[in-house]
Design a protein around this nucleic acid. Structure first.
Lengths: 232, 232
DNA sequence: CGTAAGCTTGACAATACTCAATCTCTGTGG
DNA sequence: CCACAGAGATTGAGTATTGTCAAGCTTACG
């Protein structure tokens, strides 16, 4: 599981024993559109995403869904040191995904296993980062125009994807339709598309189907008023 | 400290010893507009709010502030069981406040003091609730029109204030200007005012300066598509 | 090829913002 | 007790942003 191990190792200096634990987890595949229910599956379990994109979704009783965050390869959930409110939300696979059941790691966390303190630290960082992304999402939604908001979102995706080694030459795969991005950002699909066109013509970023080309990162971050310190 | 003790007691069945710890904390007064810096004051300390309203604010290097959440009497920060990303943000007093330094409680949490397990549990709930409010804020911002958004926000304030006993007869004091509400919800002050007028004329809620009168809670919750389960 | 999903565009309507003026409180000093 | 000042609330008019509807286009894939 290259991405996950890389990710966790980047958050804390893991021991070879930690890496063995990670390598020992067994994966399973998720079809796009699979819902991991927040009140059951994600409550007492933990998961790491090896590949594919998922979304945190708040389900309301009237059947509507609101995306509150995106989970990328290398991310996970249920791994915080204390209950985190986000883990009560459901997780929806947006693409085909390979995930692993990390409940064994969760148990190490529960036991505060001294032998795996670094692994535990890395998992806590994982949860902490998801919280940070959620707070950044609030800043985006409440304090930015549609144009800035999209720039900010793409910038975050870029940085997060880069941090797990999935960006090369300013380019990364984005296996989600524009409509999903629009939903996450509280915009209509049509308007998102118009904003995307302007971002493209302004030479900041281009995202045709399935891929993002960041053309001018500095300008993108500037337009988005992206606070680098708030991202990690 | 009636409100704080009441709040914590409502989150876990505190022992008399726990209550003594709470009663022993010494308070101080904050003038409106005081900033508790996220990178220093709130990093290694913990605080409980006895009276007054505060805001979580994300400060960006360019000097702008974005409110990410509201802290009410009975709320606190720095009291989670694991680092919570919100505690890296600053806290701004919106009104005169009386707060107490709860670092001693934080230390009990750090030590996992078995004698105070109930108090610790209550504090964890406090942190968990702030996370929940943040996630609900995302839902509000991304998935609601201005009208619904304001209704949703007022509904949350109502429920939170009611839970600490500060609502009587559908009425509670709101010592913050409309502009602050507008900032939190990503609206202009003028537009918030227009929405407020419509909410009033629709008989849902009225909030002239300093006070909120909830006229029709059921309808307010319905209009807001407020998910009661997500509030506590 | 044919189909379906998703991207793009145009035209129009609704929502929300800005600017600027006026009004209403609340507290303060005379 | 009253006049005044200042903060905040309210309104109008005009503009900008964003949404909706509907149609055409492109691409991936069988």
């Amino acid at each position: 599981m290259p991405v996950t191990a890389k990710r966790l190792a980047s958050l804390a200096s893991l021991t070879t024993d930690d890496l063995k634990v990670i390598a020992g987890l067994k994966g399973r595949t998720l079809k796009p559109g699979t819902l991991l229910d927040g009140s059951s599956e994600t409550a007492e379990s933990a998961t790491l995403i090896l590949s594919g994109w998922c979304a945190r979704v708040a389900l309301t009783h009237d059947g509507t869904r609101q995306i509150t965050g995106i989970l990328l390869p290398g991310d996970g959930f249920g791994l915080g040191g204390a209950p985190w409110a986000g883990d009560r939300l459901s997780v929806l696979s947006l693409t085909p995904c390979v995930i692993v059941d990390a409940t064994s790691i969760r148990n190490l966390i529960r036991l505060r296993s001294p032998a795996h303190s670094k692994l535990i630290e890395a998992c806590h960082q994982l949860a902490w980062l998801e919280q940070t992304y959620a707070l950044n999402h609030i800043v985006r939604l409440a304090g930015r125009t549609a144009y800035e908001r999209v720039a900010h979102f793409i910038a975050e995706l870029y940085i997060r994807m880069r941090d797990v080694g999935l960006v090369s030459d300013g380019t990364f795969a984005t296996p989600i339709p524009q409509q999903v991005v629009a939903d996450a950002l509280g915009l209509s699909g049509v308007h998102l598309n118009r904003v995307a066109r302007k971002l493209r013509s302004d030479g900041l970023v281009d995202f045709p189907r399935g891929v993002v080309y960041v053309r001018d990162l500095d300008m993108l971050l500037k337009v988005a008023r992206f606070d680098g310190a708030a991202a990690s």
